[in-house]
Amino acid sequence: MANEVEQTLIEPLFQALQKERFVTIATIDHETGGPNVSAISWIYAPSEKRLYFAVDNRSRIVQNIQKNPLVVITLIANESTYSISGKAHVKIEKMEGVPLKLALVEIEITEVRDVMFYGAKISVEPKYEKTYDAQAAAKLDNQVMTALRNA
């Protein structure tokens, strides 16, 4: 059913965000003032009211959030598409235990909206593959997700 609005993550979304997952993040571009959309996968929900994600600390995402904290995460899960709005800030400039210079960004959720168009459901969720060394990718993913869980 479309257009349901919540203030926190519903249980199926919270569960979906307990592991690495494909999502998009929309920020306000710090130079143009227009929308900026990026795909990320290192995201984790420590509670129904907050999200953590990791991104290169030189990323345009970080620059955009520092100028304007309003963000939207788009998540495809639970047979639907959800818009998760909130205010973001850099919680940790450089995450420990990770070989890359990654920032940990925290989002305080203000609204969760089912934005799937009427009369439809998602029958197959997006899948992705890492295109570099599979063993190195798995090791890095494990390090980043462990750091997110322990933050």
Rank of each mutant, 00 (worst) to 15 (best):
Y52I: 04
R50N: 14
G34C: 07
I28K: 09
S47Y: 02
A39Y: 10
F22M: 08
S38N: 09
R50T: 11
R58C: 10
P46S: 03
V23N: 02
S41M: 03
I40C: 04
L51S: 04
A39I: 12
T27L: 11
N57Q: 12
G33Q: 09
T27A: 11
I25D: 03
D56Y: 08
T24E: 09
S41L: 02
A39R: 14
K49Y: 05
S41P: 00
F53A: 07
H30A: 11
S38P: 00
T24Q: 10
T32D: 04
D29Q: 06
Y44E: 03
T32K: 06
Y44C: 01
K49S: 13
R50H: 14
A45W: 00
I43P: 02
F22D: 01
T27Y: 07
A54D: 04
Y52G: 00
N36H: 12
I40V: 12
A45H: 01
I40D: 02
I25N: 06
D29I: 07
S59N: 15
E48Y: 10
R58M: 14
I25P: 00
A26E: 10
P35F: 08
S59T: 13
E48K: 15
V37I: 14
W42H: 02
Y44L: 04
I25F: 11
W42L: 01
I28Y: 03
V37T: 10
T32E: 06
A26P: 07
P46C: 04
